[in-house]
């Protein structure tokens, strides 16, 4: 009996030492660890709507649709598993996973991200070739790689099929490649 009481007292002293363990969470914020993966956020200034995120997403929640001269990038984050594959796949580093975790909502539509970009059409045949930002990036890279100014030729505003035709017609370009 005495032994039992002593062991109980010992436990009581231990508990006093430990102090309060319970978090005061709803009254005080409890931020997650630094590399916590919360709600994805799209930086629309950097995104060039290439669709690499959609290819990488395991839940297939990122869709890209082209309609009426507008490219729509739609994230249905209701079924997001917060794996971070889209962030790793993005060449522009436009997707980041925030620290936000209090995502409870009555309707899953509140968890969508919709970004719309103007499509650029081929100047010859009118097929969509990409967005203005994609063309800017290509122009930048081409100008950096060669002293030959392709950007000035409006060559980049053609679809692959029309580009081939224009290449054959332009004697100056053919000579440049042959030389």
């Amino acid at each position: 009996m005495l032994k039992h009481t002593i062991s109980e007292l010992k436990e009581a002293v231990l508990c006093l030492e430990a102090g309060q363990v319970t978090l005061r969470y709803p009254f005080e914020p409890h931020p997650p660890e630094g590399n916590f993966r919360g709600k994805p956020v799209l930086n629309t200034r950097k995104c060039m709507s290439c669709g690499a995120c959609g290819n990488a997403c395991p839940a297939r929640l990122i869709s890209i649709t082209d309609a009426e001269g507008i490219r729509t990038l739609l994230f249905e984050l209701a079924r997001c598993t917060y794996c971070g594959e889209c962030r790793d796949a993005c060449p522009q580093e436009a997707i980041t996973l925030s620290q936000q975790f209090e995502l409870s909502t009555a309707s899953p539509q509140d968890l969508t991200i919709r970004a719309q970009f103007q499509l650029v059409m081929c100047t010859e045949c009118g097929e969509p070739i990409g967005t203005e930002r994609q063309l800017d990036l290509v122009r930048e890279k081409v100008n950096a790689a060669s002293e030959f100014d392709l950007g000035a030729l409006d060559y980049l505003r053609l679809c692959p099929a029309c580009k081939r035709k224009a290449f054959v017609r332009d004697a100056r370009l053919v000579q440049e490649v042959a030389a």
Partner: peptide, 27 residues
């Protein structure tokens, strides 16, 4: 997170506000 579950239950009872809203962008 367990905190998120706690928050969600409290939100269902109308004790705390909703924090998420859709992100829209049009170029």
């Amino acid at each position: 997170r367990p905190e998120a579950i706690l928050y969600g239950v409290a939100q269902a009872l109308g004790l705390v506000p909703q924090q998420v809203s859709p992100q829209e962008y049009a170029e």
